[in-house]
């Protein structure tokens, strides 16, 4: 890759570029670039460009959904009102994001940050991301995709014949089973599996995952990548356990998977991988 280095030559070139950048006359941004906003890092922007895509605009989705009063008190089984509020908030926030994406001519949103907050009386979902499209191409007819994969991951998937189709998600809330005072007392000195708990948690996790898979299937996806799981007791109601999982649903769009045959490197840095721009145009 970098066998025919001429020491010093590359840097002189970079200096010239820098000098040129700051000598440029004012107000040259024109055409489709005008007013573009994006939250991509420079690496992500370069990678996106390398596969022929470009950022268009920063887009948002949000939804606040009510949870009926009184459901967090003791009960048994699943808290369906909470999981349906959760599902509605996610669906409607991503729908808004898709609408915004379509209205700015995007084919999809990448690097979407998903923020879910569950309050006792309402679920808040906020999505932030950047709408992207193939350079110079008009809006597509299908619904835009929303994906929490970074532009880097998007570029890698794209190069391997896959494409994101949307956010898949599922959540479930269950009451931890109640133990009688006698049982608590008896078990306090024993090392035993709390079978009821195990079963309840299993069931909850299963149903969250199952909901997530169902939402992916509805989008005709072939798989879900980078699944994130958030689980544990609710801070304001410790006897309720929440499972929520989400990830990007992907589908194979090429004939078959394209292998990338990675090179093996030995890195000597513990920190961020640095790379210089002049190498980007090939050695």
């Amino acid at each position: 890759m970098s066998g025919d280095d001429i020491p010093g030559a590359a840097f002189a070139d970079l200096r010239a570029e820098v000098a040129r950048a700051f000598a440029a006359p004012e107000g040259k941004t024109s055409g489709t670039d005008r007013g573009v906003t994006s939250d991509l890092s420079i690496d992500e922007a370069l990678l996106l460009h390398s596969i022929g895509w470009e950022p268009i605009d920063l887009i948002f989705g949000a939804s606040v959904v009510s949870i009926p009063v009184g459901i967090w008190t003791w009960g048994q089984g699943a808290l369906d009102p909470a999981s349906s509020a959760h599902a509605m908030a996610m669906t409607s926030a991503s729908r808004r994001m898709e609408d915004q994406c379509a209205s700015v001519g995007g084919h999809g949103a990448v690097g979407v940050r998903v923020a879910i907050e569950i309050h006792p009386r309402h679920v808040d979902v906020e999505l932030t991301g950047t709408a992207v499209r193939p350079v110079g191409r008009a809006a597509r007819r299908q619904r835009p995709f929303v994906s929490d994969l970074s532009a880097r991951d998007f570029a890698l998937l794209q190069g391997s014949g896959w494409a994101p189709v949307g956010l898949a998600f599922g959540a479930s809330f269950v009451y931890a089973p109640r133990r009688t005072a006698g049982t608590v007392l008896r078990q306090s000195t024993q090392n035993v599996e709390l079978v009821n708990y195990t079963q309840a948690l299993y069931a909850a996790r299963e149903s969250a995952m199952e909901r997530m898979q169902r939402s992916a299937l509805e989008m005709s996806a072939h798989g879900i990548v980078a699944v994130r799981v958030d689980e544990g007791p609710m801070p304001f109601a410790r006897h309720v356990i929440r499972f929520s999982s989400w990830g990007t649903a992907v589908a194979l769009v090429a004939e078959s998977h394209v292998g990338r045959q990675p090179r093996v490197v030995l890195a000597l840095d513990d920190q961020v991988v640095q790379f210089a721009p002049e190498a980007l145009h090939g050695g």
Binding site: L47, S50, I51, G52, P262, V264, V265, L280, H281
Partner: peptide, 11 residues
Amino acid sequence: PIEAPVVTVRL
């Protein structure tokens, strides 16, 4: 646009 970068795995 830059050329597609090399894909690597770190040892």
